[in-house]
Nucleic acid binder design. Structure first.
Length: 418
RNA sequence: GGAGAGGUGGCCGAGAGGCUGAAGGCGCUGGUUUGCUAAACCAGUAUACGGCCCAAAGCUGUAUCGAGGGUUCGAAUCCCUCCCUCUCCGCCA
């Protein structure tokens, strides 16, 4: 969430920067200026009255009889007035909060301005497209080898689910371990987080209140996490951190309702209601956020490079930027079967936007005031999509799949899927 | 799920309607003392939101004793609801 004082003091600039996101990004801001003024007036008058009240209350202790009764009557009136104003103040603050919670983050000045994903900028490419003759999609490869079963998954659960079988199930978990090893070597501490979280956590990272329809909610009121970003960022909610920076990697399943994506990627395991991911999360000093983002991208690229998977780094434009993000790079891996680059990681800095929502701070130095941290996160990597990439990039004319060398030690030396 | 106990500052722990941002201790920071270390002594030790101020510093007001509501002129203290923790029993990977 944005800082109220900053927004009010720089309303024009804020609107201008939000407009670059397109659509209705600035709508929620409309009533802010007036509400902020009312809030200030209410605070001033209630606090003055409260001070008066406090002083008079002191006298109550010593007064007796009629005098006390009189003062009590006067204080009763004062007390009622303060309560009334307090109630109004609360309303105003709730309105402000609601408004701010629905305002997305300001794009960083280095983010390319654009109107759709077509305006995203390719920053660099790594590797080369493999020579695959008449490439097939992962669904066909997986089903032919008996490694993927969508039909039974549809029976058991519904659309957008899959059974992995045999060596593919093994590959999935091997990749998890491989990604965690890669992250640990780069200084990230492994976490296994809760997969169900409360509403406060969802608000902290920005999924709520605006994107409730994208989430699964349990009857007990828990939300299933759409990414480990949620529990891991909220790990330090309402804290003042004494060690900085902090780097975590977390394995978790991710659950997404995929509302509004009907007809998109309906085939295969590209877009599922449930998938596995290793997430990288960093807590940084604000001034380090941008350089940390570059490191984060490198950290996410590392396992892709070890696997020898051709990919590119894309800077998202203002229109494609996520709600809470200040700046984002996507990693897109080459999929021969689709003849396209597809997102396999998304690395973002959120500046202090999430930290303000979740109240995560650090103390710059002994005796100094706490400051909001910068939060960052990125996939390192999406496991299912890596499986897709391995199937499609490693496919052979005979239908088998050659595994990247880097993963073989995690597969007991297995060299190919047959 | 059943029965009970409890949630107070960085930590431990008093407090039972007004003088309590909160005794005392520990820790931490600064200082004095000291051959060094230790000890002792003195002082300081929160956060948020307002105001004064160009700003910072500083000063000042208000709020904060798990959360929210209520009673009262006045609530850490009384009442209600909720959350969390612990113990015992049951169930369970």
């Amino acid at each position: 969430m944005l800082d109220l004082r900053f927004v009010v003091a720089n309303l024009g600039e804020v609107k201008k920067r939000l407009a670059a996101r397109g659509g209705h990004a600035t709508d929620a801001l409309a009533p802010i200026e007036q509400l902020a003024a009312e809030r200030r007036a209410l605070i001033q008058s209630t606090e003055t009255q409260r001070a008066e009240q406090k002083k008079a209350s002191e006298q109550m202790r010593t007064l007796k009889g009629d005098e006390q009764a009189q003062l009590r009557a006067r204080l009763k009136t004062l007390s009622d007035e303060v309560k009334e104003k307090d109630a109004r103040l609360k309303e105003v603050e709730v309105s402000i909060e609601q408004a701010l919670l629905n305002v997305p983050n300001l794009p960083h000045s280095s983010v390319p301005v654009g109107t759709s994903e077509k305006d995203n900028k390719v920053v660099r490419e790594w590797g080369q497209k493999p020579a695959v003759s008449s490439p097939k999609e992962h669904t066909e490869i997986g089903e032919k080898l008996g490694l993927l079963d969508f039909e039974r998954a549809a029976k058991v659960s519904g659309a957008r689910f899959a059974f992995y079988r045999g060596a593919l199930a093994r590959l999935e978990l091997a990749l998890v371990q491989f990604f965690l090893d890669s992250a640990r070597e780069r200084g990230y501490l492994e976490l296994i987080p809760p997969y169900l979280v409360n509403a406060d956590s969802m608000r902290g990272t920005g999924q709520l209140p605006k994107f409730e329809e994208d989430l699964f909610k349990t009857t007990a009121g828990f939300y299933l996490i759409p990414t480990a970003e949620v529990p891991v960022t909220n790990y330090h909610r309402d804290e003042i951190l004494s060690t900085m920076p902090l780097k975590y990697c977390a394995f978790s399943p991710c659950f997404r309702s995929e509302a509004g994506s009907y007809g998109k990627d309906t085939k295969g395991i590209i877009r599922q209601h449930q998938f596995h991911k290793v997430e990288l999360v960093r807590f940084e000093e604000p001034d380090d956020a941008l350089s940390a983002l570059e490191q984060l991208v490198a950290d996410a690229q590392a396992p892709l490079q070890k696997l020898g998977l051709h990919h590119r780094v894309v800077a998202l434009c203002t229109a494609d930027l996520g709600f809470s993000a200040e700046k984002t790079y996507d990693l897109e891996v080459w999929l021969p079967g689709q003849n396209a680059f597809r997102e396999i990681s998304s690395c973002s800095t959120f500046g202090d936007y999430q930290a303000r929502r979740a109240s995560i701070r650090f103390r710059p130095a002994q005796g100094e005031k706490p400051r909001l941290v910068a939060t960052l996160n990125g996939s390192g990597l999406a496991v299912g999509r890596t499986v897709v990439a391995i199937l499609e990039n490693g496919q052979q004319p005979d239908g088998s799949v050659v595994l990247p060398e880097a993963i073989r030690p995690y597969m007991g030396g297995m060299e190919r899927l047959t």
